[in-house]
Structures are given as C-alpha cells and as structure tokens.
Amino acid sequence: MGKQNYIECERKGLERLINFRLPAYFNKVGLLIAGLSIAAMFYRAFALEGDTEWLKLVLQKTLLIGMLLMSVARDKDEDELVVKLRMQSYTYAFIAGVIYALVMPLVDYGVSNALKPEGEAFHDLGDFQVLLFILMVQLLCFNALKRMR
C-alpha cells in the first residue's frame, strides 16, 4: 500500500468513526427500552417482594442502554446543524456531569447532617447516578437546542 493510499484509508476510517450514528428508528427502540425499564423499576419497588436487588441492577443497566441508544441514534432529518447541536449537548452534559459528581455528595452530606444531628456519612455517587444524569442532561439539552435552532 502506497503512502497516499495509507493516508486515505486512515482518513476514511477516522471519518467513519466520527460520523458513527445508529439509524433513526433506534430512537424509538431506546425510548421503549427506557420506558419499560422505568415501569419495571416501579413494579419491582411496589409490587414485588423478596430479594430483588439483582433485578434493580439489571433494570438500571437496561435504562442506561435505552437512553444511550436514544442518544446515539440519528435524528429524523439529520444534517450538519443537528450534528453540531448534538456535539454541543455532549459538551454541556459532560460539564454538568463532572460538576454534579463533585457537588452532589457534598449537598447530600450537608442536607443529611443539617436535618439530623447524626446524619449519613459522606459517600460518593454511584456510577449509575452519574451516567443517568449525564444522559438525561444530554437528551434534554439536545432537544432544547433543536427547538431553539
């Protein structure tokens, strides 16, 4: 392979990676998975008895998968402005996620100890909480930016 071909091949590979999106129908698939997961979470919390901690963990994962599919799926009329808005929403979500992960444990600790003399001990957020927050902010920002375009 010549040097030019190698560069061309590498550029195409990079472009494929940058332009990776799932087809638009994954929006609905993701919404369905997320919706079912939330419904099942309520069902588990209020209707199921016994040790169902494993189910809670599974449902947390499926909720994240559903939201990720919605996040990565193409828009109905995807064009360069929509791509730019999506990138912008990821930026906002990342920044908000980092601030949330830093501040929220302090807020939890402060509120808990202000209300009760012996409140909860300080503990960091779990990965589910942070990822859920990041995905929620991304999806909300993306939709808000699309409405404002």
């Binding site: 009329d77 064009d79 360069e80 402005l81 929509v82 730019k84 699309k146 375009r149």
Partner: peptide, 22 residues
C-alpha cells in the same frame, strides 16, 4: 441542498454559519 428547513432558517437568521460544503 439536503438539509432541514430549520437549518436554512438558522443560516438566514445568522444563528448558524454553514460548512464550506453547504
């Protein structure tokens, strides 16, 4: 040109500067 109507609206309103291709 293969974009959405909203994109044309944003370009006309100077809210978005299109790419060279566009």
């Amino acid at each position: 040109i293969g974009v959405s109507r909203q994109t044309i609206n944003s370009i006309e309103a100077n809210r978005y500067v299109p790419s060279t291709v566009l």
